Simulated scan of single mutants.
Amino acid sequence: MKVSKGNMRLTYKQTEKNPGRSFMARQDTMPCIEQDWHYHKELELIYFMKSTGTRYVGNSIGNFGPGELYLIGSNVPHLFRNHKEYYAAEGSDEGVDLIVVKFERDFLGDNFLNLTESNRIQLLFDQANKGLKFSKAVSYLVHSHMVGLVNSQGLSSIIGILRILDILSISENYQVLCEEEINTTFRKDEKERMAKIISYLNENFHNKIELQEVSDLANMTPNAFCRYFKKRTRKSFSQFLNEIRIRHACKLLIEGKHQIATVCYQSGFNTLTNFNRQFKSLMNITPSEYMKKYETPIAVE
């Protein structure tokens, strides 16, 4: 799972194979998550027991935290990246504790999903092509099964993963991250181009970003780039950038160390009025209401 954190180009990840298992399950503890924006043919369950950061799943952007469980479909580009302080303190503490389970759609055999009893699981796998985030109540239900799966062997491991998939398949407490399936949206060259753009935005969102400089990065004219970006992400460039900035602002507001005006400028907005408008448009709540929701006092600066 460890690669250079400075490189966020899209990569295809070949999942390590264990001859004694038909799927992969492991627990990782580390100072920080270091990975590229990547995809793989396996579906992936990711359960965060300890970690916070920003998630990119297809064209969806959001924050992630402890107790959250995600199911990512086959060939869906995704990235879970910790907040900057994790990397600044790298090597000092084990700031991340997560469980990863990867399996191919037909890992239980060619005919398993065609069984009447497997209908709900087949639908679950189909929905995973949009990316799924389960509620913390569902995470609680599967917690012991996820932990037990890491060290289980033989038939008990199959029983364990079936228990997890059964619980997830009957649950209605989940959020679909993308409006439509995106695993076949990009060709390989398009994925690499989008990865370069996302990397640039992720590293520079707190600064003023001109459309021309991002268009140059994609080797396009501004008009062509805007059409290209909207077609691939189903969002305008400004909307996508504002989402990155607002997710960062949410993190700062929850911490409660800064006044709202400071959060505004540290998140890349140049006026408080625009920040308040964009925040409420995305979050359906004002920044001050958001702070009160998390009972975070405003620090005096």
Results as ranks from 00 to 15, higher is better:
residue 188 K to A: 02
residue 191 K to I: 02
residue 174 Y to K: 01
residue 177 L to F: 04
residue 211 L to Y: 09
residue 178 C to W: 06
residue 197 I to D: 00
residue 185 T to G: 00
residue 185 T to E: 13
residue 251 K to E: 07
residue 181 E to Y: 02
residue 197 I to N: 01
residue 175 Q to E: 15
residue 208 K to E: 11
residue 217 L to Y: 12
residue 181 E to R: 09
residue 178 C to V: 10
residue 242 N to R: 11
residue 195 A to C: 09
residue 179 E to F: 05
residue 172 E to F: 01
residue 244 I to P: 03
residue 184 T to E: 15
residue 174 Y to L: 01
residue 209 I to W: 05
residue 178 C to F: 04
residue 194 M to L: 14
residue 212 Q to T: 08
residue 205 F to Y: 15
residue 215 S to P: 14
residue 206 H to F: 08
residue 254 I to D: 06
residue 225 F to C: 07
residue 213 E to G: 06
residue 237 F to Q: 13
residue 180 E to N: 05
residue 244 I to Y: 06
residue 202 N to C: 06
residue 186 F to A: 00
residue 205 F to I: 05
residue 251 K to P: 00
residue 196 K to S: 10
residue 226 C to H: 12
residue 185 T to Q: 14
residue 214 V to R: 11
residue 179 E to Y: 09
residue 209 I to G: 02
residue 232 R to W: 02
residue 176 V to D: 01
residue 245 R to F: 05
residue 230 K to C: 03
residue 221 T to E: 10
residue 208 K to Q: 06
residue 228 Y to K: 09
residue 239 Q to A: 06
residue 175 Q to I: 13
residue 206 H to E: 12
residue 224 A to T: 15
residue 218 A to F: 08
residue 179 E to P: 09
residue 187 R to G: 04
residue 207 N to Y: 04
residue 243 E to N: 13
residue 218 A to D: 10
residue 246 I to C: 02
residue 191 K to R: 14
residue 194 M to Y: 13
residue 242 N to W: 08
residue 185 T to M: 13
residue 230 K to W: 08
residue 233 T to V: 02
residue 213 E to D: 13
residue 252 L to H: 06
residue 241 L to K: 10
residue 201 L to D: 06
residue 246 I to E: 00
residue 233 T to L: 09
residue 189 D to P: 09
residue 183 N to L: 03
residue 192 E to N: 15
residue 215 S to Q: 14
residue 198 I to D: 04
residue 206 H to M: 07
residue 217 L to S: 07
residue 183 N to V: 04
residue 199 S to N: 14
residue 241 L to D: 03
residue 173 N to T: 10
residue 195 A to I: 11
residue 215 S to W: 13
residue 172 E to S: 05
residue 232 R to C: 06
residue 219 N to C: 04
residue 209 I to P: 03
residue 213 E to V: 13
residue 254 I to T: 03
residue 186 F to S: 10
